[in-house]
Design a protein around this nucleic acid. Structure first.
Lengths: 345, 345
DNA sequence: ATTTAGCACTCAACACCTTAGAGTGCTAAC
DNA sequence: GTTAGCACTCTAAGGTGTTGAGTGCTAAAT
């Protein structure tokens, strides 16, 4: 457990905030002058030496100023920084951008991601609501060709998804319509996770039908509900990272961008459940090596107590944490509000 | 009209090929030694001076070697380079990667784009078949909620698209099914471009129906058929460009990457009709300023004489043209073959 | 017992110079 | 028409000196 006296805390704060905004190591003189803490550079130097001993800051080289370490950022985020609400003006612009795009939840999430990346100028990732937690609102089978049927699935949040179902004989539109009605009768209102072959069996018995569509449909639903393939991921503002001197080394930038291309990594990056809070992962706290120099801020959005998906920001460890976190708080709440209104099951 | 004697052509060839592979300006000694043209460096120097006068090559500075100009590349591409087929091995791997992914044309195109970017190590763009040129194979209306109906549209190449249709009253599934059947009857086989309100009127008269769905559906089809919004664009291998020293300047790389984020620019970049050929646009020949230092190689794919979409490669002007063009030729043919087999209208 | 001023010391960054070498254009000989 | 030779040019790389920011330590001041 780290205990800092008030003065050291203020010095650490000054160092973090100055470094975040300038990108240059911060010297004792700068702290004394710019942050009017009412003490001399020499005093600050002494405290800095202590802070360094504690591992909160370090020097790139002997005659340079100090730079916060990952631990220093952690201390700053946990105990020092002060969050502030977005300006009302900004809040309004963001709200505006979200409302005018309400045609589809996936599009909404994509837009949220876009807004995040724009107003933080970092990279943003988001995953659309996972199927597995949704309830079926409506489904319908549409004939495609002699061995394919399209399953159109509408879930409670209004998302529409298409799945191709392979079948072994051709079915007439009328028959498929009848089956659709039957399925709607039985399935609608059920969570996707509860659809299984047992259910199919029951229906088959009850209606004495032998046709093969039923199992195939249930199969596809089960498969798609669980498969990570069917999770929609949005990535916005990837080129933003090139603004930061941390990535002026092209090979580093490339490594980063290539990592972002891997869907699965992104999904696992986000899928730390964050309950009701915004979660911050700093530098070396990251599991992925590619992100040792980056920080990730994530949040989840919910309907009631059902986790729907996550949103996140990725940027250099030298990140404006207060701002990013405030921004994420705001958007998380905003998103939850919008979703609460949509969900008329 | 530019006429080069055989020797000058071979010198230009050597310069282009050496520069493409090394990225360094090419000197007379290098040409003489590495490309055994059987003449001395001095002779080559004389010819190089001529080539420079013709604007085909130029010197970055007095005591440097020569670098091809855009015009030089053009001459090389048009009259000098020799295309060679892909190795059978490579052809097989590519064919493999395409076949195992046949579930959906859009996915196929995306995969093609992916393959292109991988085997050229440049960035690849592709547009999926445009709706406007497709014929309707099947359509069906699915109820969503009290003022929305989903239009599921299946076109002749097997692509399935969903469109939300706003309506002003709630319709029963049975009614929508009946309308779907009617629409199928009237529309299926028709090119999307031919659907219009006249057609809707005719149907309404014939069936004496007054319900409002029909117009709305026709409206949505017309709108989506023409809107550039509904063109699907795929972009693969964006981070590849960071491999080239041309983009080791981060701000240049950023500019490039940001340009790629704009769908519309990409679409217009590709939508030069290229008939039966692969088209090469070199450096300053590009309309977009952002691409003055890049070359773009595009090709189209067709079913019969209907243009479906385009595929393209974007890379630095210092590009291995012969290889890229061969690769594109191959994939264009491959794609056309696959599509020919799919299209059982 | 802190805090502060003063001072010697360190080190990266920058400017400046020198050198090496790659490449040229020109001329005169082949 | 081609080539060898040579003087010339210019960049890239390495070396040197200077500057200034920043430190740590010590001794005086509070």
């Amino acid at each position: 457990m780290m205990i800092l006296d008030d003065r050291k805390r203020r010095i650490l704060q000054a160092i973090v905030e100055d470094f975040v905004s300038t990108g240059e190591p911060v010297g004792s003189r700068t702290v004394a002058k710019k942050y009017s803490l009412g003490m001399s550079a020499a005093t600050i130097r002494n405290d800095m030496a202590d802070l360094e001993e504690m591992g909160l800051i370090h020097q790139p080289h002997t005659s340079a100023g100090r730079v916060p370490s990952d631990l220093g950022y952690r201390e700053y985020v946990d105990k020092i920084m002060k969050l502030s609400n977005l300006s009302t003006e900004e809040a309004l612009t963001i709200r505006d951008k979200l409302v005018c795009r309400l045609k589809d939840i996936s599009q909404l999430i994509k837009q949220v991601s876009n807004v995040i990346s724009q107003s933080t100028s970092y990279t943003s990732v988001a995953v659309a609501p996972r199927l597995i937690n949704s309830k079926i609102r409506h489904l319908q089978l549409v004939p495609i060709d002699k061995n394919k049927v399209l399953l159109v699935l509408v879930v409670n949040d209004g998302t529409v998804r298409n799945f191709m179902v392979k079948v072994n004989k051709e079915f007439s539109p009328d028959f498929l319509f009848a089956v659709s009605n039957l399925l709607n009768d039985k399935f609608s209102g059920l969570p996707l996770g509860e659809i299984d072959q047992g259910l199919a069996e029951k229906i088959k018995k009850e209606y004495l039908t032998q046709e093969g569509v039923l199992e195939q449909v249930v199969d596809v639903i089960r498969q798609k509900a669980y498969s990570p393939e069917s999770v929609e991921v949005f990535l916005e503002g990837t080129s933003n990272i090139l603004n930061f001197p941390e990535f002026s080394d092209v090979s580093r930038a490339k490594e980063f961008l290539e990592f972002l291309d891997e869907r699965n990594s992104l999904i696992s990056l986000l899928s730390t459940e964050t309950n009701d809070e915004v979660k911050v992962t700093i530098g070396s706290e990251n599991t992925f090596d590619e992100f040792k120099g980056c920080s990730v801020v994530t949040a989840s959005y919910w309907i009631g107590d059902k986790l729907l998906g996550n949103i996140g920001v990725i940027g250099p460890t030298r990140m404006n944490y207060a701002r990013v976190i405030s921004c994420m708080e705001f958007l998380r709440k905003e998103l939850n509000d919008i979703l609460r209104n949509i969900d008329h099951e």
